[in-house]
Amino acid sequence: MGLPARSQLLPSTRQITARVWSSRTLTTTRPLRQIEPRYPVDTQPEKPINFYKTHGRAFFKAITLAFLTYQIAYWAWLTLETEEVMDQKKREIKSLESEVRLLDDSRKSHRPGT
C-alpha cells in the first residue's frame, strides 16, 4: 500500500478561501449578547503576595534605580552648590583684602609725623 498523494492530505486553496469567506462577518457592530469566557473566573480576589511574587524583582529594581538616580543627582547638585559658595567666599575675601589695603594706605598717608 502506498501513501496518499499530497493533494489528498492538504486542502486546496479554493477550499481554504471558501472557508474564510463563509466565516467572515461583514458588520461592524458588536453582537448584543455577552460572550461567556472560555476559562473559569475566580471569585476570590488575588492575594497581594502573588503580585510581589511575579513583579517583585522588577519593582525592587525600579525603586533601587530611582533611589540611586536621586542620590547621584543630589550629590552633583551639592557639589556644584559647594563650589559656587566657595567661589563667592573667595571673591568676598579678595574684595575685603583690597579694601583693607586701601584703608591702610589712606591711613598711612594721613598720619602726621611719618
Rank of each mutant, 00 (worst) to 15 (best):
29 T>G: 11
99 E>F: 08
77 W>A: 13
40 P>F: 01
79 T>N: 13
110 H>G: 10
41 V>K: 00
83 E>T: 04
79 T>K: 15
28 T>C: 11
70 Y>P: 00
59 F>N: 11
114 T>K: 14
26 L>P: 07
58 A>V: 10
4 P>E: 00
65 L>P: 04
17 T>M: 10
106 S>W: 10
26 L>G: 09
84 E>R: 15
51 F>H: 05
93 I>S: 05
114 T>Q: 13
107 R>M: 12
73 A>N: 03
71 Q>V: 13
63 I>R: 13
8 Q>T: 06
58 A>Q: 14
31 P>V: 00
53 K>W: 13
103 L>Q: 03
86 M>S: 11
15 Q>P: 01
53 K>T: 12
91 R>D: 07
72 I>W: 01
74 Y>S: 10
91 R>F: 06
6 R>D: 11
22 S>F: 08
27 T>K: 12
9 L>S: 03
79 T>D: 14
49 I>M: 10
76 A>C: 10
10 L>H: 02
30 R>N: 08
80 L>M: 15
29 T>L: 15
1 M>P: 10
47 K>F: 08
79 T>F: 15
80 L>E: 14
93 I>T: 09
16 I>Y: 02
94 K>C: 04
46 E>A: 05
105 D>P: 02
77 W>Y: 15
68 L>T: 03
96 L>F: 02
47 K>E: 14
22 S>P: 03
71 Q>P: 04
101 R>L: 14
2 G>H: 14
108 K>V: 07
32 L>Q: 09
85 V>T: 03
114 T>N: 13
27 T>Y: 10
81 E>S: 13
96 L>G: 02
8 Q>K: 07
58 A>S: 12
55 H>C: 08
88 Q>V: 08
11 P>S: 00
80 L>K: 15
10 L>S: 06
13 T>D: 12
38 R>W: 00
57 R>H: 14
110 H>Q: 10
89 K>Q: 13
44 Q>N: 10
7 S>Q: 11
56 G>I: 01
49 I>Y: 06
108 K>R: 12
52 Y>C: 01
7 S>T: 08
40 P>D: 00
22 S>Y: 06
43 T>V: 04
18 A>Q: 13
8 Q>D: 09
67 F>L: 13
92 E>T: 04
88 Q>M: 12
43 T>E: 05
1 M>Q: 11
68 L>D: 03
63 I>N: 08
105 D>M: 06
38 R>Q: 01
59 F>S: 11
15 Q>F: 03
93 I>C: 04
12 S>Q: 01
108 K>F: 08
39 Y>E: 02
67 F>H: 08
77 W>V: 05
55 H>N: 06
100 V>Y: 04
19 R>H: 04
30 R>E: 09
37 P>D: 00
